[in-house]
Design a protein around this nucleic acid. Structure first.
Lengths: 234, 234
DNA sequence: CAGAATCCCATTCGATACTG
DNA sequence: CAGTATCGAATGGGATTCTG
């Protein structure tokens, strides 16, 4: 058993109230349980973001609260603040290794919530949240098949999804990388893409609704069929 | 109490402020993100509990807050309140199927928190939280081997852990069921057991520290060696 | 024991205004 | 753009009391 000294010291990043509970879940909720904290981490899971990026992705958060959450998460050791090299005089927030490991519980929560009736997928969704949903909702089991590289451009942000060996990796990408993909989806907003990936909407119908599909159409079809929302539970 | 006015069809169980976000993580945090909510669910994961059981397991929660959280979780569809048959005139709270499915994200959060330095395992721990930690920290990979049934009595509460096919099931048990187990651990509090399961403390040393080991000692040894805290991340 | 009802203070939120 | 400062309003939560 590790030493863990500190008689009565509080956890870093704690918000002044803390559970006296050794359970990891309790500790996790001290770190991520404040309003907005987990969504801030979510937005950082696909790479560093600036203050204004985060505000844009989290409609409803105020500058004050975002500032407070970023400071708390930094103190907690979840993320760090990095100043970009001179050309760009700006600052970005970036997850540390441990912060990045929060992806697993975050996706697990998303899968759980999606099993609820009452979950409303019509609300706004950030591009990052949409891309992460693909990782959350990749149908399990032997879906395998040939590797697949699929590009996404959603609301101006580009990503590359790489499927290989029954796992799906997602990262931000440049236009050049998207050119090398097997297929690409482009949309002004995530909502029409949700219809394709979780609503079983056929591709040609989606193209009426603001989705552009480029590249190998069969690959796009196969990729889209790999995702499904979990069944609802009572 | 919340009156649920408003035409806008808010999410059930929402606490009046809500994220406008279709992401499942956001919805999950609306349901479980309030202080104490997730820990209440945790305490129900191994079966129904009474109001006073929950208060005892969650030191620091007030009657008012517990009442509010139970009401909110019931409205959200996570749990339901059941009146026991006449002999016992009391009431219990019980997870619904969907509520029970929250075990996956709850354990994922626990694993994540355990990867942090700063996690203090010396704090008090409820018997349920300890038993769940076994499910969270079962070492992955081909640990297999013969099935194993191990009893636990912690602070007067008894459980049976059944390992088979690389999976570990845990449930409450009666004294008779414990008698049929391959081995049994008994302790007044979870802390000394933590030293055995996560601190690599040898059994005979643990027996100096308030742990009683009964039954097949080799089985007890093998079982204890199946668990490990995840490695810390920076 | 199980909870509802009150009281009341500390914290927190969001909006707005302001600054480098 | 990236925050800070301030302020009124809402909420949270602990303690206490009351009831069946």
């Amino acid at each position: 058993m590790e030493s863990l000294k500190e008689t009565g010291a509080r956890h870093a990043g704690s918000h002044g109230r803390w559970y006296q509970d050794a359970c990891g879940t309790a500790f996790a909720m001290e770190l991520l349980g404040e309003r907005w904290s987990m969504l801030v981490v979510r937005e950082l899971l696909l790479g560093p973001r600036r203050f204004s990026d985060l505000r844009a992705a989290l409609p409803g958060i105020s500058a004050k609260v975002l500032t407070e959450r970023l400071a708390g998460l930094e103190t907690a050791g979840v993320l760090l603040r990095r100043r970009l090299p001179p050309p760009a005089a700006s600052q970005v927030y970036e997850l540390r290794a441990w912060g990045h490991a929060a992806e697993a519980p975050i996706l697990a929560l998303a899968r759980w919530a999606a099993m609820s009736r009452g979950h409303n997928p019509q609300l706004p969704l950030s591009p990052v949240a949409f891309m992460l949903s693909l990782r959350a909702m990749l149908a399990p089991g032997p879906v395998s098949g040939a590797p697949l590289r699929v590009g996404f451009t959603v609301a101006g942000e580009s990503f590359l999804a790489e499927f290989a060996g029954n796992a799906l990796a997602v990262r931000r990408a440049t236009a050049e990388e998207l050119a090398g993909a097997d297929a690409s989806f482009t949309a002004e907003a995530p909502l029409p893409l949700l219809r394709v990936f979780y609503g079983h909407q056929p591709l040609d119908q989606a193209e009426q609704g603001g989705v552009r599909v480029a590249g190998d159409r069969a690959a796009a079809e196969r990729f889209a069929s790999m995702f499904a929302l979990p069944e609802k539970l009572a």
